[in-house]
Structures are given as structure tokens and as C-alpha cells.
Write a protein that binds this DNA or RNA. Structure first.
Lengths: 345, 345
DNA sequence: TTGTAGGCGTTATCAA
DNA sequence: TTGATAACGCCTACAA
């Protein structure tokens, strides 16, 4: 390969090795705008010129400067994902699905964490908003009005929450809850506790409402205990109240809490599921590792992340809302942590 | 509050509600460049003007356009984090530490996944590179030369890998391995297997080398089996070879593999730790949930992520490399998966 | 098909 | 202290 014109080489080096369309234009002997056209939307240019330009671009290892590109277009090719807690296994699946969907479309995923605090969340969002083309709120603790207002400004999709007509991807809560309640009622349980999640969790309330319906249908008793922190700690702390309620089965807002409760039960010498059945939601990594393995309602987390990003993208590209594929199916996974109601209490 | 001049209001609305420094300048009756100064580096401006400008900015709910800002400065206030597999629990801690360190400094973290493939990784990096100020490679599978070349272009920090004089944050492999080997040797094991990770994993080789040293020192036998996929699957698949080796203790490259091996052992009716001791590295979520709970060498993953980002930032802000705080301490956590060597075999 | 020129929102350099 | 003006790298009418 021939040497580059020394002046050009020097200019590029000064910029840290990043070539611009001007450099390519010079090398190919065309106008920068032609380079832009050739590289952005191939086809609308003579084959010969395009080939020349491609060769020059290749030679200079050219990459578009995304920031420069974003300025005139207003698009950063970036999607934001907001989660309450990155280390919560529930969000892993969501993150992965979202990342893949974004990458597949040539978008970059930006992740921000809000620490379970509405304050921090609002702040993170306003920091993020100007630099992303769209936003996915995975576990938002924001008030409905805030969410609606935000949705006006950029394409936005909610996971596990419905707010007005803001786009969302939701699980089929009812079928999962029904399957779970059928399962427990079938085992003879008539006194069941629901361990609620955070106060601001929409999905926790939905689960509770479905639980109420099912309890009525099956003629069993349920009580709600909470709100609780949606963590292992949160599950551990609530054992006393569960015992006081004299329930024989517990459904926790998520697997993390169920695991915490089981740990506390084990420490207190309470047999699971002999004396107490425990179940959760989500089917996170770890749920089948614990002993006894956890009965849970499986959620399609990865799919949820993927769908959410796809919806944002479809708003972005087509300008229209994606057709709604409906609720995400939900499956009861029966493992060892639930069993027959203890004979006497 | 008074009404905005209608023309101004219309202009802002056209842009989707985002005001610019021009709008503020108009509202405050000053020059745009003055607005830029007032808002970017307070102090270098008369108090009166600054107050006026702040008031106008407040009123228009002004936010800087990060992309426009990045153009003249060449800084995007963004740091890239590249991981092989987002859903690998090992990276959770790293991600969290990195996110916090970045957010604390006003930077945004961009995460990309390379799927354990050097090809995909190289591609992800070149997609990311133009838009980030610096890069953290958490579990890179790239060749040394590629890494060195990349490090020339932008501040870059490696986790769990040393390449030339590229900055890195590394664990104190030796002390952890020594503690583990002392532990196993103390239990009477004299025939130990190391389940290697991926061929391209630098840290896997380092662990093996330390293992060799320790084995020599303690006069016990070790053999390496691998390379293996660093996943639960990878651990499951290797059980036959472990048995064939007639080892009484296995040290896996990471906890995921150890868990997989334990599952396979349980399925095959092999008692852990009665017939076989199993240990891992990292101490991921799930390691203490499994039964028996896993003996492992704890790594400070969150701290590693944090340190890595801090190093990038210090290169970015001070222009100089951060002082090296040395290796990250590593701790043996003895749980139930390791026990005395079985009497006869 | 290709070149010209203006603009995207901000910073930075000079004057005033 | 403040204002004018030229970058920054790319896109896009519009003209040639």
C-alpha cells in the first residue's frame, strides 16, 4: 500500500487516529458531501466513485463520529435502560434481552441505576434523556404523572407496569397467579400469606389483586404482609410476621424474598415445605440451586427486555407504535419448596 | 411567572421542548457565549449576569445537549464497559462497581457484550470506541497485540488481565490459591484437578500457574483439565473426565463451573464432599445457596469494577496514570463443598 | 451524479 | 466581564 500524503497523515494523527470524511474526500479526490452520501446510503452514487471512497475509508480505518452525526440528525443511536438495582438477578435477563435487541439494530444500550429511589431515578432519567433516542423503564418507582410527562418527550416503554397509554410490556399475571393458587389449594392450603414488594411496585399490587381474585374463587384465605424490600434481606426480616399470621404457605413478591424467607426459616428450624410452603415469582438464577429448590412463577425476563427495546425502536423507525403482541406468558414451575399443608397446626 | 415570548416558545416546542443556550441568551438578553460560560464554569462571570442566566435556564428547564457538547471538546462523558457475558454472575459485581464509580463522577456507563467471541468483541469495541472517552475490558478474549494497539487510542483499563504496561486491576491470585491449596492439603487431598476456563482467559492460566507452585510446595498432585466453557454447562460436561482422573478434589476456574460439576455429581450419585470435594473462584450469588454451599475464593468484583473506572477517569482528568493500589485481596471462604479426603478409592 | 453552503448546539479564541 | 466568530464532524437541501 502506498504512503499517505504526509500532511494528511499528520492531521489524522493529531486527532488521535480518527479520520473524518474530509480526509477521505481528500484521499479519494471528491467532495466531503459525496463521501457522506456514499457511506451513509449506498446506491445513490456512481459505482466507480463509491468504490474509490470505500477504498479510501478502508485505508484510513474510517468510523463515523457518532456525536457529530447526532448533531444534525438529533439521533444518538442509543437507548437508555433504567433499572432499580443492577445486581438484582431479576434485571439480568432484562438487560441481556435489551442489549441483544439494541445491538441487533445497531443501537447502543446505556444502563442507569436508580437504587430503588424515586428521587435518584428522576435524576438519572433527566441526565440520560438528552442523550438517548428512547428509554426503557424496567422497574420504575416513579409516579404515574411523571411517567406520562416523560413519555411525551421521547419514545418510552415500561416493563411490568401500566400507565395510561404509555407503551408497556407486561406479563400475564393472572394465569401465573391462578396456576400458583390452584397448586397451593390443591395441596390443601387454606391460609396463605402474600409478601408484598415495595410500595411503589405496580406489579406487586397486580399480583396481590390477582391473588385476591383467585383466593375468592378457591375459597381460601390470603393476607398481605408488607410493603417489604424486594431483596433477600427483606425476605429474612419478615419471618416472624409470617409465623404470627399462622399461614401454611407463603407467596413472595419475588424469588429473592422467597429465598431470604427460606434462609430465615432454616435458621429457625422450620421445615420447608414440611411446616411451611414457600413460593416466589420470576425464576431467577439461584432458585433451583437453593434447597429445597424454589417453586416459582417463571417470567420471561429476557423476552421482556427484548420486546421493550423493539417497541422503542419501532416508534423510532416507523414512527408508529408496534403492534401489541399481548401479555408475556407466565409459567408455574413446581419444585421442592411447596408441599402438602401440614396436618395440624 | 410571565409568559414566554411567543416566538421563543414556538421555537423551543419545535425542538421537542429542549431549549438551547441561544434561547436562554435571548431570554436573558445576553450573548450565547456568555450563557455557555456562566453555565459551564461558574465564577468567571459577573454575579448579576450569572443570576439572570440561571433564572432563564431554570425557567426553560435547560439541559446541555451532550452531543453538541462533545463535538468541540471531543469528550462524551461516557465510559464503555465490555464484558463477555452479561448474564454471568461474575460480571454483576463488576458492572455495579463500575456504574457507581462512573455515576459518581458524572459519567455515563455504556455496556457492551462480546459473547465470549474475540470476533464479536473486536467489533463491539470498534463500534464503541468513537463514542466513549475510555474503556474497561472486563473479561477480554482479545490477543495481547490488539489490546496494546487499542490502548494507544483511548484510556483503557483491563480487569483480570495483564498486558504489557496497559493499566489493569488484578486480584492477588497467589494468596487465594495458596489458601485454597493449604485448605485442601490440610484435608488430606493429594490428587487434585483444576478445571480450566476458556483458552483465552489470562486469569485462568494465572490460577493454574499458582496452583502448580502451591502443589509443588505442598507435595500434592494436580492435573489440569480443559479448556472448558466457563459456565454451568461447562462444569456439568466434565464430570466423566474428573472421575477418570481419580482425583478427590476439584478446583474449578469459577463458581459457575463448580456448581455445574456439583449438579452432575449429584445426578450421578456422587457425594459432595464425601466422595469428592469441589471448590470454585469468585463467590458469586448462588454459591452459598447451593447444597452443599460452595467453598470458594472470594474476589472483590465490585471493587474491581470501581477501581477500573477510577483508573480510566484519572487518566482522563489528570492525564496521568493513577497510582497503583496494588492487587485486590482475595479470601478463601470455606463452606460445605470441601471435606476430608475419602479414606479409600 | 456530484459540489456548494448552511446548520445542528456548544466551546474556545480574540477583540472590545 | 462580555460579545463576535470560527471551529468541531456530519447531514441535507439546493444548485450545477
Amino acid at each position: 500500500m502506498e504512503e499517505l500524503p504526509p500532511e494528511l497523515a499528520a492531521r489524522i494523527k493529531r486527532r488521535g487516529g480518527a479520520a473524518t470524511i474530509y480526509d477521505i474526500a481528500e484521499l479519494a479526490g471528491v467532495n466531503p458531501s459525496t463521501v457522506s452520501r456514499a457511506l451513509s446510503k449506498p446506491g445513490r452514487i456512481s459505482e466507480k466513485t463509491e468504490a474509490k471512497i470505500r477504498a479510501a475509508a478502508e485505508r484510513l480505518d474510517f468510523q463515523f463520529n457518532p456525536m457529530a452525526r447526532a448533531l444534525p440528525t438529533g439521533r444518538s443511536q442509543t437507548i437508555g435502560l433504567l433499572v432499580a438495582d443492577i445486581t438484582n438477578p431479576v434485571v439480568f435477563g432484562i438487560v441481556r434481552g435489551a442489549e441483544h435487541a439494541a445491538a441487533a439494530a445497531g443501537y447502543t444500550l446505556v444502563i442507569a441505576e436508580s437504587q430503588e429511589s424515586g428521587e435518584a431515578e428522576a435524576q438519572a432519567i433527566s441526565r440520560l434523556l438528552p442523550s438517548v433516542d428512547g428509554l426503557v423503564l424496567a422497574t420504575t418507582r416513579l409516579a404515574d404523572e411523571k411517567i406520562s410527562a416523560l413519555a411525551e418527550r421521547k419514545p418510552m416503554v415500561l416493563i411490568n407496569r401500566r400507565v395510561g397509554d404509555v407503551a408497556g410490556v407486561l406479563p400475564d399475571v393472572e394465569s401465573g397467579v391462578n396456576a400458583m393458587m390452584d397448586h397451593l389449594a390443591g395441596l390443601g392450603h387454606t391460609s396463605i400469606v402474600y409478601l408484598a414488594g415495595p410500595e411503589t411496585s405496580w406489579i406487586s399490587r397486580r399480583r396481590w389483586e390477582s391473588l385476591l381474585d383467585a383466593a375468592e374463587r378457591l375459597d381460601v384465605g390470603v393476607v398481605e404482609i408488607g410493603p417489604n424490600s424486594p431483596t433477600i434481606e427483606g425476605g429474612r426480616e419478615v419471618l416472624r410476621r409470617v409465623q404470627a399470621a399462622r399461614a401454611t404457605a407463603v407467596i413472595a413478591f419475588n424469588d429473592l424474598m422467597a429465598i431470604g424467607l427460606m434462609q430465615a426459616a432454616a435458621a429457625a428450624g422450620i421445615d420447608v415445605p414440611g411446616a411451611l410452603s414457600v413460593a416466589g415469582f420470576d425464576d431467577i438464577f439461584g432458585s433451583e440451586l437453593i434447597v429445597p429448590p424454589l417453586t416459582t412463577v417463571q417470567a420471561q425476563l429476557e423476552l421482556a427486555g427484548q420486546r421493550a427495546v423493539e417497541k422503542v425502536l419501532s416508534r423510532l423507525e416507523d414512527g408508529r407504535d408496534a403492534i401489541d403482541e399481548g401479555l408475556l406468558a407466565t409459567t408455574l414451575v413446581v419444585r421442592g419448596s411447596t408441599g402438602p399443608r401440614p396436618p395440624v397446626r
